[in-house]
Structures are given as structure tokens and as C-alpha cells.
């Protein structure tokens, strides 16, 4: 088994295997990643960086695709849910 990485999602501590994506880390807590322009909750659809439904804020940068971003120790992730 690989090493674990700890990060913060909406202020909660989440632990996932090294190499996991931010999307996987968020999913430990919630299935709601972003609000659509008309306010409905959205979550990853394509899992491969195409659909942009998994956009979240990572370390202060908005509109980051969670499925394309590997976790790193101490990362701060904020969803719009």
C-alpha cells in the first residue's frame, strides 16, 4: 500500500493515498463540487479533464480541475457547495 497524504477539504482533514486526485479526496467528504451557473450542485462527470464539472479552488486558485490535480501534503481545497 502506498503512503498517505493529508490535505484540507473545506476545512476538514482528509487522508488519501499518494497519487490520488483532488477529486478523490473531495469525494471522501462530499459529492458536491461546484454550483452551476443556475445554482445546481455538480460533481465530476468525465473523470478525465474534459467536462470541467469538477472545478474547485485549490490553494487559492479558482477553477482548478480536481480530477487532473494530484493531491499534495497540506493542500487547501475549497468546493462551492
Amino acid at each position: 500500500m502506498s503512503a498517505q497524504v493529508k490535505l484540507s477539504v473545506n476545512g476538514s482533514l482528509v487522508e488519501v493515498p499518494a497519487g490520488a486526485s483532488v477529486a478523490a479526496a473531495i469525494a471522501q467528504l462530499t459529492t458536491q463540487f461546484r454550483r452551476s451557473v443556475s445554482g445546481t450542485h455538480r460533481a465530476p462527470l468525465c473523470g478525465m479533464g474534459v467536462c470541467f464539472e469538477c472545478r474547485v479552488q485549490v490553494d487559492g486558485v479558482a477553477h482548478v480541475r480536481a480530477c487532473m490535480t494530484p493531491v499534495s501534503e497540506g493542500m487547501q481545497v475549497i468546493t462551492d457547495a
Binding site: 488519501v16 493515498p17 497519487g19 490520488a20 486526485s21 477529486a23 478523490a24 479526496a25 469525494a27 471522501q28 465530476p44 468525465c46 473523470g47 478525465m48 480530477c67
Partner: peptide, 9 residues
């Protein structure tokens, strides 16, 4: 499948 491989629970 892709998300699962990324560690999606």
C-alpha cells in the same frame, strides 16, 4: 473507472 483509479471511494 478513471475516478476510481484516482482513489475515488
Amino acid at each position: 473507472q478513471a475516478l476510481t483509479k484516482q482513489g475515488w471511494p
